[in-house]
Design a protein around this nucleic acid. Structure first.
Length: 478
RNA sequence: GCCGAGAUGACAGAGUGGCUAAUGUGACCGCCUGCAGAGCGGUUUUCCGGGAGUUCGAAUCUCUCUCUCGGCACCA
């Protein structure tokens, strides 16, 4: 039974979707005013694994994740750089999509953009006003009337009204025309020099929270099974969504499960531009293979704080390589294996390991534990192929289990770099084999100096030579 | 002030009542090897923040103390 930690109840709960095997899942996407940073990578890789695991467990997942392409931050950034706001958001949307692809994040079933849903947003805001849940002001702003449903405040963040009022962040803006301190904006009037759309309340643009309510209801359902995002979105963003959506539809709860990923820190400090420890995904991709970055993220439970440092990435890379080496060892064994039914206990081991993987993942997507089980499995596999002679069918089943698990975790994808001839200084397979032959000759003549110099030469070009019992193997490495 | 997360070996990090606690990285030793790599075996490793309590039995439950980190209307 899959168990999931629900922020709403602060408990681990059995996962039972609202409607059989169908899972409607909405994950808050980025506001595209800059290149995405490592925190985004953490969040979207985590939810990607959750999504893939649900699919693996037989659920029919409808995964929706938005792009917030109009917002104060987009507008401010455009003003600073003198660019057109829409041009800017288009640019960073493309950048984001590139990053997600590099990290092996599956494309959502739908990736709606705010600017393409202005009509829907206006309709929803109008409906909220009609329902008496919101009010428009003289200045052309529309606010959600929280005082009216004050008993619902803190439903997700578990804060009291007093607590929120006394919060350090609680500021009363002099310009504000809202009635109640905790009211939040649904529609914000735009000056002529800023992006805006005509509405019943004048020219304006959507407030920050409304887009997610509107687009999740449009592309998922009026009631979601899972709503996800970073922990920092719990308040006010997700709580605002609950108010808006439930006032609009009258359906409770807006989402049955709320899942939030933990933060990413840099050298134990919060990532922030002022501290100068801010890394974009692209900066890190320039230094580490995407598979390593993904492994680093998946190797930590999604709710734990994950501390980024170069050392941690290096360690993750080594750990991952250990698993990749085993897979590569098994592949070699397959090519040399006898075509008989010698099982050597592999079938049983595979079944046990699959169960261990599922048990770990069923426990609130405990990827760290699941990978721990994978190391145990791999060590046993290495041992068996070193000491026994299993037949090809059994070995192929081992590879099948690795790919089955890879469907969920996505950590064994070959890094493009490692396999491309261009990055290995353009050296061709033929040339490599030629050099290996030369080296073999030298070795036969016990000319170790020559043999080693050939090996070093190839290593410089990213080709790793390994002598085994059954001859020489080589592989490209970045 | 309010809310939350956490403290497990050198480091990272599983583990929520019962074999002296998974796994990875590092270091060292051994096997294998001409050497190296990969792999295997072993050591580092009785390591659960302090104290009190419950229990036949606690890292795990209760109380308490200390410390760390994060959120609180920009945020993944």
């Amino acid at each position: 039974m899959l168990r999931v930690y629900n922020t709403l109840t602060r408990e681990n709960e059995d996962f039972v979707p609202l409607n059989g095997k169908i899972v409607n899942m909405y994950v808050c996407g980025p506001t595209v005013y800059d290149h995405c940073h490592l925190g985004h990578a953490r969040s979207y890789v985590s939810f990607d694994v959750i999504r893939r695991y649900l699919i693996y467990r037989g659920y029919d997942v409808n995964y929706v994740s938005n792009i917030t392409d109009v917002d104060d931050k987009v507008i401010d950034r455009a003003k600073e750089s003198g660019e057109d706001a829409f041009e800017l958001s288009r640019k960073f949307t493309a950048s984001f999509e590139e990053d997600m692809k590099a990290l092996g994040v599956m494309e959502p079933d739908t990736r709606p953009k705010v600017t393409e849903h202005i009509e829907d947003i206006i309709d929803t805001v109008a409906r909220l006003i009609k329902n008496g849940a919101a009010y428009a002001t003289q200045k052309g702003n529309v606010y959600y009337d929280l005082e009216r449903s004050a008993d619902r405040i803190g439903i997700l963040s578990h804060q009291t009204v007093e607590g929120l009022m006394e919060g350090s962040g609680c500021r009363i803006d002099v310009e504000d025309d809202k009635r109640y301190q905790l009211d939040f904006v649904l529609w914000k009037s735009s000056p002529d020099n800023e992006p805006g759309w005509d509405s019943p309340w004048g020219r304006g643009r959507p407030g920050w929270h409304i887009e997610c309510s509107v687009m999740s209801m449009k592309y998922c359902s009026q009631q979601l099974d899972i709503h996800g995002g970073g922990m920092d979105l719990i308040f006010p963003h997700h709580e605002a969504e609950i108010h808006q959506s439930e006032s609009c539809t009258g359906i409770h709860p807006f989402s049955k499960y709320w899942i939030h990923n933990g933060f990413l820190t840099i050298d134990k400090e919060k990532m922030s531009k002022s501290l100068g420890n801010f890394f974009t995904i692209k900066e890190v991709l320039a230094k580490f293979p995407p598979g390593t970055i993904r492994f680093f993220i998946v190797y930590t439970h999604y709710r734990s704080t994950i501390d980024f440092s170069e050392d941690a990435l290096v360690e993750a890379g080594r750990a991952r390589k250990r698993l990749l080496n085993t897979i590569s060892n098994v592949k070699h064994s397959v090519s040399e294996a006898p075509d008989n039914n010698n099982d050597c206990g592999l079938s049983e081991l595979i079944d046990e390991s699959r169960s261990a993987f599922i048990d770990a993942m069923d426990d609130d997507f405990n990827t760290r534990k699941a990978i721990g089980e994978l190391f145990v499995f791999s060590r046993k596999i290495n041992s068996i192929i070193a000491n026994e002679k299993p037949g090809r069918p059994s070995l192929e089943k081992v590879l099948d289990l690795y790919s089955e698990i890879n469907e969920v975790l996505g950590i064994f994808e070959d890094d493009d770099k490692a396999n491309s001839e261009e990055l290995s200084n353009g050296i061709s397979d033929e040339k490599i084999n030629e050099l290996i032959e030369l080296r073999d000759k030298a070795r036969a003549e016990k000319d170790w100096a020559k043999a080693d110099s050939i090996r070093d030469e190839l290593k410089e070009k990213g080709i790793i030579i390994e002598d085994g019992k059954e001859g020489v193997r080589w592989r490209r490495e970045n």
